[in-house]
Write a protein that binds this DNA or RNA. Structure first.
Length: 581
RNA sequence: GCGGCUGUGGUUUAGCGGUAUGACAGAGGCUUCCCAAGCCUUUAACCCGGGUUCGAAUCCCGGCAGCCGCACCA
């Protein structure tokens, strides 16, 4: 049994993760989060909110998980999020149809499936593996389709990322933030991709949770005022150059910026923040690296892109966060499809006097002369240079051919105008987190099996402990009466409710021997256990047992809920919680 | 989507033509018992659908799921 199997087996058994629809046989790519899983996931999301929403001030929004066609036409997902596949009838191997013929035609990826099939048959393209005949090309789009409204309602798609909802709201967001860059919005929610064959557990899901921030910044100023905060942070950097050499470099963020490895401060700050977040939820620092996209793998619109990758037992390095400078690509794409300018007006510190050559077509003259074509003529005139306009005979080309424009129908001059600002299209820095993958990593990195001395002789036995960080542990305190006796149950129940009222998630457990119960709570990562025994009845003291060290202290029941709260959230030293036993 | 292997209580296993073995876990009780194995009691399974057969967990076919390769991976 490898570690992955051990972790998944425990996760299933203890209520972290279950296969979805198991009752009906299950379906690949879907997982249920059980009681402890949901709680752990919420705690991870809550830490993300704390860092990105509260500390950074990027407010959370919520947009539909179903999107209309135009949104994904603009984002490129309708056209580009699918691949033409074609299978060999003999050996069953599947190929990208466009790749099979890209030597034969100039623009293979722009062809329709019918055209691809035609070219394949005309050129007698055979299976590269076995020379067998190829079947028909079919399109596999990774978006789930749905219908909006009844009958022939509008085509809808389940969103493949939460990002587009934030781009679409750009103008509203800009106004909300009083049109000052930088500003950002965040969203934590489900996204959907109809993966061809998802079979890596929670690493590749058809419905998954993303936490994304879209931060709109000044394209000409990508500095970050708080970069100093992470200047000395040492990262495991796996830059483009480092990948050539095959070795990860340890480097501070300041150094990476100085050497130009990370494109700019704003991106570097997000990398620092991501590093902080991942470690805070429980990713082991030595199992975390930041890998730069190589020039040829980077999306064409991105200028620099870094993935946070974590080391896993079975899948090796897995991407859990992508941090990209997407430039103005998304805003321009939506501007073009929606025919709406998506920009922000920025005033110059001082108005500028700008001298420019201005062409003013006289519409009063052009109108009667050219009728319906007048507008087209005017547009064409504006494109002409001073020389062309001064030639005496002014000719412009419009769709119906060349026309001659009388000199008095157009005026032109050098003009000096006052420009007090300009419309700029912000660039977007996007950190995008795969919460489910992070969730799995937290489980795997918390999982520990250690040998402990057994009760009898010198045998050793193994103890499974989930070493969750206090902040993420789903169950925070266990209350355990030493024996199932009425005189112990009652005070135990009282302590349970005091701790609950303090806001801690507490579980009461009186089933089985005390040792068994400790082990059970170790397996779900409960940081502290309170044991009520016969001494409690005498002197109102109880035992607090710490999960990681198995050490115990004796302390008073009075105020125990506050002691526990401080242990959980205020980094209180365990030894200070009572008298060591 | 293709090929190979697999599918038995919650987990893990034995059985491979006559309704199922064990372990661990779970529940209740006993117990002044603080680190899983004490005692008593107890819950609980043949992935789904067809076929062959007097009879199928077992054989055959199909589906679903898992693992491993191939392909895919904004």
């Amino acid at each position: 049994m490898d570690k992955y199997e051990q972790v998944i087996e425990l996760a299933k058994r203890r209520g972290f993760l279950w296969n979805s629809f198991e009752l009906y046989g299950g379906t690949a790519g879907f997982y249920d989060y059980g009681p402890l899983g949901s709680t752990l996931k919420r705690r991870i999301e809550q830490i993300w909110r704390e860092l990105f929403v509260i500390q950074e001030g990027f407010m959370e929004i919520e947009t539909p998980t179903v999107g209309i066609e135009n949104v994904f036409v603009a984002s490129g997902h309708v056209g580009g999020f699918s691949d033409p596949l074609c299978e060999c009838k003999a050996c069953g191997e599947a190929f990208r149809a466009d790749h099979l013929i890209d030597k034969l035609v100039p623009v293979a990826d722009a062809l329709s499936n019918e055209e691809l099939d035609r070219i394949i048959s005309e050129n007698q393209v055979k299976c590269p593996e076995c020379e067998g005949d190829l079947g028909d090309t079919y399109e596999f789009n990774l978006m789930f389709k749905t219908q909006i409204g009844p009958g022939s309602g509008r085509q809808g798609y389940m969103r493949p990322e939460t990002a587009q909802g934030m781009f679409v709201d750009f103008l509203r967001l800009a106004r909300f933030y009083r049109e000052k860059l930088p500003f950002g919005a965040t969203q934590i929610g489900k996204s959907y991709r109809n993966e061809i064959s998802p079979r890596q557990g929670v690493i590749r899901l058809r419905e998954f949770t993303q936490a994304e921030a879209e931060i709109f910044i000044d394209p000409e100023d990508k500095s970050h005022p708080k970069i100093g905060r992470f200047a000395d942070t040492v990262l495991n950097l796996y830059s483009d150059a480092a990948q050539e050499k095959g070795e990860i470099e340890k480097m501070t963020i300041a150094e990476a910026l100085e050497k130009g490895i990370i494109a700019h401060e704003f991106l570097a700050y997000q990398i620092g923040l991501t590093n902080l977040f991942l470690q805070r939820v429980g990713v082991a620092p030595e199992m975390l690296r930041f890998r730069q996209h190589k020039k040829d793998e980077m999306a064409h619109y991105a200028m620099d892109c870094w993935d946070a990758e974590v080391s896993t037992s079975r899948f090796g390095w897995v991407e859990v966060v992508g941090i990209a400078d997407r430039t103005d690509y998304d805003l321009c794409a939506h501007a073009s499809v929606s025919k709406t300018e998506l920009s922000i007006y920025r005033e110059y510190p001082e108005p500028k006097m700008v001298t420019q050559f201005v062409v003013k077509p006289n519409m009063g003259k052009l109108g009667p002369l050219f009728k319906g074509k007048a507008k087209m003529v005017a547009e064409a005139l504006k494109e002409l240079s001073r020389e062309e306009l001064e030639k005496g005979e002014i000719k412009v080309k419009i769709d119906s051919g060349e026309v001659t424009v009388p000199e008095d129908a157009v005026q032109f001059a050098e003009e000096t105008v006052k420009v007090s600002g300009e419309n700029i299209v912000p660039h977007v820095v996007e950190p995008s987190f795969g919460i489910d993958r992070i969730f799995y990593t937290v489980l795997e990195h918390a999982f520990d099996e250690e040998a402990v001395p057994a009760k009898e002789d010198d045998e050793e036995e193994s103890r499974i402990v989930m070493r969750f960080r206090n902040e993420t542990a789903p169950v925070q305190v266990a209350v355990l009466p030493l024996l199932t006796r009425k005189e112990l149950i009652e005070p135990a129940r009282n302590i349970e409710s005091k701790i609950r009222e303090q806001g801690l998630l507490v579980s009461y457990d009186d089933s089985g021997t005390i040792g068994r119960r400790y082990r059970r709570n170790d397996e779900i990562g409960t940081p502290y256990s309170i044991t009520i025994d016969y001494d409690t009845l005498e002197d109102n003291t109880v035992t607090i047992r710490e999960r990681d060290s198995m050490k115990q202290v004796r302390t008073s029941v009075y105020g125990i809920e506050e002691v526990l709260y401080e242990l959980m959230y205020k980094n209180r030293d365990f030894e200070s919680a009572g008298v060591a036993l």
